[in-house]
């Protein structure tokens, strides 16, 4: 595998904020996985001179961090020597559909250089995990190692004004080194419009095939065939995950003849999606309280095992 060079690492403002929040709310040091994509872009620094340079050589690879999972402790998916255990990664990421792009480590009051174990973990991770490079012009994509590493620290001296430090690195297999990379923070706004050039929307809704289906199969709404029922059940499940009490059939109102009531349909759908979000939020709040209580009990036991008296 080629040791490809990442130009920079990008992370959206909310993702970085939530990463910092997660790290700073934990009592001790933590680590975790980060997910995202790698894009190949052609920089738009076209000039009249030097046309001899081929376009492929000036291509740049950019990693974008889209989400993360925090383990809540250290030495979570690797052993003390830094050897990554793929089974523990699967256990930690649950069924996150995103590509594993690298990992992060957060430790309070330490210098912001990679530690011995962090270097070893990065080396082991990038030798075992790869992700495809997204390239719209050249879909026959190649793979790249999961080589991104985020280091989050807090300053050693208390009197400094800032409270957090973060650096990103790429592990290069050719020299076995973690090379620092600049972090680009992507926010919404006119200044960042360029970042959305490669954006392709993904919807969690099932495809709205109602119209097609009607034209092909007369005006019969009631479809009795087993496969259609199965499909409808599957679609309903997908919708249930997003909205509260919205039926597959209701989606028909958004296309075709009934689209005259379009606004009403959309409003209803948004209301039901909001209801879903609210019920999720209250679920989360309840379970967070339980997790917090359990965490407290666990910590007490850990302290007892380490013979720390408070």
């Amino acid at each position: 595998m080629d040791d490809l060079f990442l130009e920079r690492i990008e992370i959206s403002g909310p993702t970085l904020a939530s990463l910092l929040q997660r790290v700073s709310s934990s009592p001790g040091d933590v680590d975790g996985l980060i997910f995202g994509q790698i894009h190949r872009i052609v920089p738009s620094n076209l000039s009249d001179d030097s046309p001899a340079e081929s376009s492929s050589s000036s291509d740049q690879l950019i990693a974008t961090v889209t989400s993360f999972i925090c383990s809540g402790k250290t030495v979570s998916f690797y052993d003390p020597l830094g050897r990554v255990n793929p089974r523990r990664i699967d256990y930690l990421r649950v069924d996150s559909p995103d590509h594993l792009i690298g990992w992060f480590s957060a430790r309070r009051k330490t210098s912001n250089r990679p530690s011995m174990r962090e270097l070893a973990v990065s080396s082991s991770l990038s030798s075992q995990f790869h992700l495809p490079i997204e390239d719209s012009e050249n879909p026959k994509s190649t793979n790249m190692a999961s080589s991104v590493f985020f280091l989050l620290t807090t300053p050693l001296a208390d009197q400094l004004i800032h409270t957090h430090e973060y650096r990103s690195f790429q592990f290069r297999s050719s020299n076995q080194r973690l090379e620092p990379r600049s972090v680009g923070i992507v926010n919404i706004g006119p200044a960042f419009r360029g970042h959305y050039g490669s954006f392709s929307p993904k919807s969690g809704f099932p495809p709205l095939v109602c119209e097609l289906r009607r034209s092909a199969m007369s005006v019969d709404y009631d479809e009795g065939s087993l496969s259609a029922k199965k499909q409808a059940g599957k679609d309903q499940k997908e919708i249930d995950a997003l909205a509260d009490g919205l039926h597959v059939g209701d989606l028909r109102r958004l296309v075709g003849a009934e689209a005259a009531n379009y606004t009403g349909g959309i409003e209803e759908m948004y209301e039901k999606m909001l209801a879903k979000v609210e019920s999720l939020a209250s679920d989360v709040e309840r379970s967070s309280a339980m997790i917090y209580a359990q965490d407290k009990r666990n910590r007490k036991l850990r302290y007892r095992a380490a013979r720390i008296e408070r």
Binding site: K73, T74, L81, S115, L119, A120
Partner: peptide
């Protein structure tokens, strides 16, 4: 660097700024 929250794990080490290439653990 020990982790007092998880005191059973072995410590980690941060070496000097000139020793970036020092990689004592064999992966």
């Amino acid at each position: 660097i020990y982790n007092s929250e998880y005191a059973v794990t072995p410590p980690d080490f941060i070496f000097g700024p000139d020793d970036e290439d020092f990689m004592p653990c064999s992966t």
